[in-house]
Amino acid sequence: MGIGYAALAIKAGLTPFETVSMSVLIYAGAGQIMIATMLAQGATLFNIVLTSFVLNFRYFVMNTCIYNKVDDASLSVRIPSSHLAVDEAFAMFMLMEESSIWTYIGLAGIAWLSWIFGAIIGVIVLNVLPIIVANSFNISLYALFVALLVPAVKESKELAILVVITAILNVVLQFFIGNWSLIIAILLGALIGMYTVDDDTVLGDAYKTGDDNCSNEEVQ
């Protein structure tokens, strides 16, 4: 996956060093891909930073859950480890019995390192790969996006409709507001979803809610 991101970033005009730095410092799968895409489309710095903020704000919710679950973490461990939050590590840890911060750090740390490693491999091999292979890797990111969406969409018709509405919004808005359409479509889509999508669909397993946010007793 890191390879696909690297392909996109290099194509957007980033240097190999910048490409890998983003994986180390920002560490947000979809967020980084969005940055590379927006750069390629010539979006402004402010626009890209704001869209990153919105797209990555979900880590706030995830870390709220994670640090409520862990029982053995001092501040000096919590602060650096908070950087490791991503969707996959979050989902796995919240579904585990284990509640030690070190289990989480092991799990999430490996995900972080492999994302960085992927980017390094990407910038190295892309120099020697034929263009069609590089292009195919490029599309692998979209394959990943689709593969992440399909299971959720399969479960819920409302969510499927919401996904289509958001996509249409994004396309239509591009004619009026250019690069701002991405962030506006994301927010408008989520806003519409608040009223159209079933609560159970979006507040499933790892996020079990109620008056008691994501407590681990509820997560098996």
């Binding site: 704000f57 996904v163 989520a190």
Partner: peptide, 20 residues
């Protein structure tokens, strides 16, 4: 919270279309 949880889905949708 529901609004926040929906963002990854709408973000994926907007990233895929029309970028793909």
């Amino acid at each position: 919270e529901k609004f926040l949880n929906l963002i990854p889905y709408t973000a994926l949708a907007a990233l895929i279309c029309p970028g793909v």
